[in-house]
Design a protein around this nucleic acid. Structure first.
Lengths: 334, 334
DNA sequence: CTGAAAGCGCTTACAG
DNA sequence: CTGAAAGCGCTTACAG
């Protein structure tokens, strides 16, 4: 059952059939109606390989997910693929190890598959700066800003991570905390973790305290297990901390467990704040105060930016969506 | 840069180039070496649309994920796509709402995209029985058995959910619990939740107690929030329960929170067991006793079965992989 | 508005 | 072992 069968059965030529498939205007109503009816009756679906081959277009959009265990990314992925599916786009997702070079992976992928567009869930700006110029298709970086990078085909949608982190510190400060530790991420990176770290440092500095990176900060990946280990180290080393700001909910969740293992109650002995508002912080005991970034809003805006770039050649945009500090039960006033 | 360019530059014909691309044997070593070198030098990658069009083959394998928030599925997806990628297969993933008809979605997808194979992460056997016969490509159902269904192109890999649930009840029983409630899933379904429920009922019955479905069972989706709500209802209704078996970790995690909100300590006032061994049960306070099913083992075996069916036309297999009860801190002896 | 024809980049008999 | 040619199922100028 191919386009020729439909042409024969409907009494029109393949050209006309093709035009109705593609919703082009220059077809008579009569022809359109008839052809649609025949296609319907035959359950005909155009062969996408042939279409894409001709249209010199690409098979789908590729999504690269940084790190396997990231809940927020999983939460974004669902809505994202839904939005894209509504627009008729498939998404092929690739999970990358935390230490994989996402831009390299994307370049290889582009070479092999010629996607129409790509989206990066997370990513390290440094790698983008180095090699993103090899990428030609419209892309969007999600949860991390690409504004500074200035590539014409790289949009981004993100919250203001630095301000959000500063807000957390402000919140802790208002509740009387002066000895605040920070947990997670990686100083060398210039991704979200360093933005958040910077925000925390700035807010502290504005209040006259300099964050002691050697003592009161402990880096770690955004995983429950890593958060657990890192928190144990931090707590052991800096036992005078009254509050810990974990740069991600998964880390905070691990830290909550670590505190329990150290015999510390949260928030009795130690206050804790997370980041992302996943179900981890919503249902833990105690519920963890955190920063919400809306997964479906991020997904929406990302799909929008990508589609606009893919379809209308819209220029790259850098959208900053709002965040919200959600106060729960893990911070006490001292 | 297409196959003709490579042909010209290497001094061979396109047929020969095509043969080396496809690793066919009837090419001289000299030709192969030369052509490979030219391809390498040009960074040439064959156009997959053209290949698939000619090979009348399909673009990729499709994965359907039932429900958006399922951690276990997310954990399977990563390794699964990695295995498949090693074998040169893309995977296009589609997230389905909990109430979506996965087999219908797959039929539509097959119609539209002609995938080489499909994998279902979760799924309702009833729907498979009804309409899977419309599906022609090799498929595998993961975390749920398709053995009873008897379709020649539907493999499955799963643990023995019924035995695992029975094991949980046995464990609770050994610790002195006689009033055991069950939380989660859906009685009408005949998917994993009903298997687990059945296992629990059986184990209870073997010990002379009949599970009161109206009083000591509360159905719910496999989400933290649903587990929370369901647990509150169950606890309010059947306050004499000494233990609750949640049919999933997410549910257990929600239940842990619900217990806290009811002023019940776990395991002091109420013992709790989950299912899946996600990080939710690993790092919660208390850590939750649960059943481990190995995500990467499930992924491995599924990829294996699918590949065998796709490449060698291997018949459907129904593999049962081991589970393990992992004892933690949420069950006390009474 | 419509059809006939060329061609997208490959693979695969068919000859040699 | 290798090349020339046909054709996979579409789309898109080009005529009309």
């Amino acid at each position: 059952m191919d386009i020729r069968d439909i042409a024969t059965r409907s009494g029109y030529g393949v050209g006309t059939v093709s035009r109705v498939i593609n919703g082009q205007p220059n077809v008579s109503d009569r022809a359109r109606k008839r052809i649609l009816a025949v296609m319907e009756e035959c359950g005909y679906e155009p062969n996408s390989n042939a279409r894409y081959l001709k249209m010199r277009a690409q098979t789908s959009v590729a999504a690269f997910v940084m790190g396997v265990g990231n809940r927020l990314f999983d939460d974004i992925l669902g809505p994202l693929q839904a939005r894209l599916a509504e627009a008729g786009e498939d998404v092929v997702v690739t999970y990358l190890d935390d230490d994989a070079l996402e831009v390299r992976a994307a370049i290889d992928y582009q070479q092999a598959r010629h996607p129409k567009g790509m989206v990066f869930l997370g990513g390290e700006p440094r790698y983008f700066a180095e090699s993103f110029h090899e990428i030609e298709v419209p892309c969007v970086l999600v949860t991390n800003s690409a504004a500074e990078l200035g590539f014409p085909n790289l949009s981004s949608v993100t919250i203001d991570n630095e301000s959000a982190a500063a807000r957390v510190v402000e919140h802790l400060w208002e509740h009387g905390h002066r000895r605040i530790g920070v947990l997670g991420g990686n100083r060398a990176s210039n991704g979200i973790s360093s933005e958040r770290l910077r925000g925390a440092e700035r807010a502290l500095r504005e209040r006259g305290v300099e964050l002691d990176l050697e003592r009161d900060y402990e880096p770690c990946p955004f995983l429950e297990s890593s958060g657990y280990e890192a928190a144990r180290r931090l707590i052991a080393r800096a036992s005078d901390l009254t509050a810990v700001f974990a740069l991600g909910d998964a880390i905070a969740f691990g830290a909550l467990r670590a505190a329990a293992d150290e015999g510390l109650s949260v928030p009795g002995d130690l206050s804790l704040v997370g980041f992302d508002d996943t179900s981890l912080s919503q249902f833990s005991v105690p519920r963890i105060t955190t920063v919400r970034q809306g997964a479906s809003l991020l997904a929406d805006r990302s799909a929008h930016a990508l589609l606009a770039a893919m379809r209308e050649g819209a220029p790259a945009t850098h959208e900053v969506v709002p965040f919200e500090l959600v106060e729960r039960e893990s911070v006490r006033t001292i």
